[in-house]
């Protein structure tokens, strides 16, 4: 998204091997891209804190159900198990896209990214279905503090996933247009960092929100 300045002022080489002959992935081959990857890691650290705050809010308010339903009566076990396996699989396919990108195989990269985005859409579709169902039985954000926190935490994750899908599509377009260059390689790498991160967040959502909600007897 932005441009970095290198120290040397020299033109960047685009070859994938450093002077010592060791393997350097394309996305790390020039300092511009390497620093963007680092900057994105820092963003993920911040995003982690954002989710921590939402988790803290949810945990504090999870028993405040007022006149609304509690977790046990609301959550559909089959639904969240499906969502979980879809997202875990998409994390794997995203990892495969990085693998193919590192081997400079543009078709494979595009294919795996497409599968990942489709799995992401399936996940978001299931989540929307779940939310629509909840709202249909009168369990809305306005019903209770528990539901406000639930919809916000899970919805924020869903929003992240949706943004990730749009982002992936734009990268697929760029891959088809420009092939695997240092810039597109970096974009593939970063969008997958984001995607794996969202997978980790989901692991905590299914653990803390869904499982703990269902088994609290």
């Amino acid at each position: 998204m932005s441009t970095t300045i290198d120290h040397t002022g020299a033109q960047h080489g685009h070859d994938s091997h450093s002077s010592t002959g060791a393997f350097v992935p394309l996305e790390y081959s020039d300092p511009d891209n390497a620093i963007k990857i680092f900057g994105f890691w820092l963003f993920l650290a911040a995003d982690m804190v954002l989710f921590a705050c939402l988790f803290a809010t949810f945990i504090v308010l999870r028993t405040h159900i007022a006149n609304g339903p509690d977790a046990q009566h609301l959550f559909d076990v089959k639904g969240f198990i499906e969502e979980t396996f879809i997202l875990l699989t998409s994390s794997f396919t995203g990892g495969m896209a990085t693998f193919f990108m590192r081997h400079r195989r543009v078709k494979g990269t595009v294919a795996w990214l497409t599968v990942t985005a489709l799995l992401g859409m399936a996940f978001v579709g299931l989540e929307i279905t779940e939310f629509v169902h909840d709202v249909g039985i009168g369990a809305t954000m306005q019903t209770s503090a528990f539901l406000s926190a639930f919809f916000t935490l899970v919805g924020t994750h869903g929003l992240h996933v949706s943004i990730g899908i749009a982002w992936m599509i734009s990268i697929i377009v760029q891959l088809i247009r420009y092939g695997i260059t240092p810039a597109t390689a970096r974009k593939v790498f970063i969008v997958n960092l984001y995607w794996h991160f969202l997978d980790v967040v989901w692991v905590f959502i299914f653990t803390v929100v869904y499982i703990m909600g269902v088994i609290h007897a």
């Binding site: 393997f23 790390y28 979980t84 396996f85 875990l88 794997f92 990892g95 495969m96 693998f99 997978d199």
Partner: peptide
């Protein structure tokens, strides 16, 4: 140094582990 395998073992093992743990 970076390491990149010729076959995506890491990814496959990682996927299996995440499924088993879940």
């Amino acid at each position: 140094k970076f390491h990149e395998e010729n076959f995506p073992w890491k990814g496959i093992i990682g996927y299996i582990m995440s499924i088993v743990l879940t």
